[in-house]
């Protein structure tokens, strides 16, 4: 099988049952994508495939031979962090760090979805759904963080999204 991951080409011999997540972790040494459930329930394995966020544990590698795949390793390096990676550090948007690569890849995908105007479950208006804290929380709820860095994760993403305090907390009927 052949893959393009983080702009690099790989030829791999793998079982056809290999998930995209296991391909990265077990065959390519890209262990930044994490396995928290292997069932699409936690988001730790989130990668960007053709720019969209997906749970890489729920898809077979063999299906993605012609796709553009980006993992956390492709977003930035420890000494050259992507703005979201840097914001997660400065806002302490993690504790153990295990869900973190998935959170960050998910946030990249989510911000792009928001930019395209896609509404979410909590959007009051389906054609006009500006990002605020509530939208961010909802849209990031596919990524579980058992350490519960959620408030800090929202802070980090809101900063990168360039939201002002007023934009983050607009009036709503139920603040929850």
């Amino acid at each position: 099988m052949h893959f393009t991951i983080n702009g690099q080409h790989h030829e791999v011999e793998a079982d056809i049952r290999t998930s995209l997540l296991d391909l990265a972790r077990e065959h390519l040494g890209l262990t930044g994508s994490k396995k928290g459930c292997d069932h699409g329930q936690c988001g730790a394995c989130t990668m960007l495939v053709n720019g969209r966020r997906i749970n890489s544990c729920l898809t077979l590698a063999v299906m993605h031979q012609d796709d553009e795949i980006v993992t956390i390793e492709g977003l930035g390096q420890p000494d050259k962090l992507h703005p979201l990676q840097a914001a997660f550090v400065s806002h302490d948007g993690y504790q153990c760090g295990y869900c973190t690569p998935g959170q960050i890849c998910s946030a990249v995908g989510m911000l792009d979805e928001a930019k395209k105007g896609w509404p979410s479950h909590v959007s009051a208006d389906l054609t006009d759904a500006p990002l605020d804290d509530h939208e961010i929380s909802e849209r990031m709820s596919g990524n579980i963080c058992r350490c519960a860095a959620y408030p800090n994760i929202v802070d980090a993403i809101a900063e990168v999204a360039g939201l002002s305090d007023e934009q983050r907390q607009p009036e709503r009927e139920v603040a929850a």
């Binding site: 930044g32 390793e73 420890p78 840097a86 997660f88 550090v89 400065s90 993690y94 760090g97 973190t100």
Partner: peptide
Amino acid sequence: LDRIDGPLKVAGRATY
């Protein structure tokens, strides 16, 4: 202070 292990964690380079 920011966590000193932070850059490794957010870059997916911390090894579990």
